[in-house]
Write a protein that binds this DNA or RNA. Structure first.
Lengths: 148, 148
DNA sequence: TATATTTAAGTTGTGTACAATTTAATTTTA
DNA sequence: TAAAATTAAATTGTACACAACTTAAATATA
């Protein structure tokens, strides 16, 4: 067994599957003028409005270098607004616009459509989900993002 | 259960775990002057030398838009060379330099080091690997890349 | 066999990722 | 409480990813 053989890598399937699933989101997200990372930011805001850039970054594991331009795009698209927190001027507080809030309704069907495209039944979905949450825990990816 | 809740997404953990593992490769790859995608190309070449750009892209699921500049970097680093296939001038044939071949020896320890960093035992590793290969199969990511 | 189609790389443009650094605000501590 | 340390965003620079398109070579077909 050659550890340098591609078939013996654990990371590569994560990398390949992640890219593949994101590709399958595109047909559903493009009509909403969203990329996948932008969609993730919207998911966070639909859960909790009025959050700092820092806390969005905490949940999505993205830093300001990625989020600053991404937030700029979402503002240009009219989905969010930003303002400094008067209590702490270092913090940028992000909130949904009316348009951003109404977008949630249009995005409601996406998870079900994606599950169709992935062709997984409930048991398979749950099995994969459990395994991923467990591994995320081992890798310590879940402390502040609360995704599991 | 809100399907738009981040905790109910299947793709997000793939995306987050993939990025996290790649981040943990960095300390091992940086001394070899390789990024993770560049390392993947080297893995392909250490398995089989003298392959076309197209077939590298088939195995790694990357197109010429990604691979052309990446190959340029690996040439600059002195690890590979490129030439047109005289039998079919459309094809670019990639082969290892002597330095590229000797690099395999320096990379031999990386998979074991990564497994240490991930903190997975043999059973966990195998369990995750099986699940990933199964899902990759369902998503039809494995036809030509032969990684499983 | 000339034309149409297909194929492989390359190019262009947009959008992440992230390390490293900078700037400004807040908190700690000597 | 003034200086040091920390923190949150922004900035800079490098490197993917990939859609869409271009170019050139090879193959198919009318």
């Amino acid at each position: 067994m050659n550890p340098l053989h591609l078939s013996n890598q654990l990371c590569f399937p994560f990398y390949a599957i992640s890219k593949e699933i994101i590709k399958r989101y595109r047909p559903f997200l493009a009509p909403l003028n969203l990329t996948y990372p932008q969609y993730l930011v919207m998911l966070v805001l639909w859960e909790e409005d009025f959050v700092t850039l820092k806390s969005i970054g905490g949940r999505l594991q993205l830093d300001s270098g990625t989020l600053t331009p991404l937030v700029k795009k979402l503002i240009q698209s009219g989905y969010i607004e930003k303002a400094r927190n008067p209590e702490d001027e270092r913090q940028l507080v992000i909130r949904l616009t009316e348009r951003g809030r109404s977008l949630e309704e249009e995005a409601k069907e996406i998870p079900a459509r994606i599950n169709e495209v992935l062709g997984l039944n409930k048991e398979e979905y749950d099995q994969y989900k459990d395994m991923l949450d467990e591994l995320a825990g081992k890798l310590d990816i879940k402390r502040e993002n609360g995704y599991c």
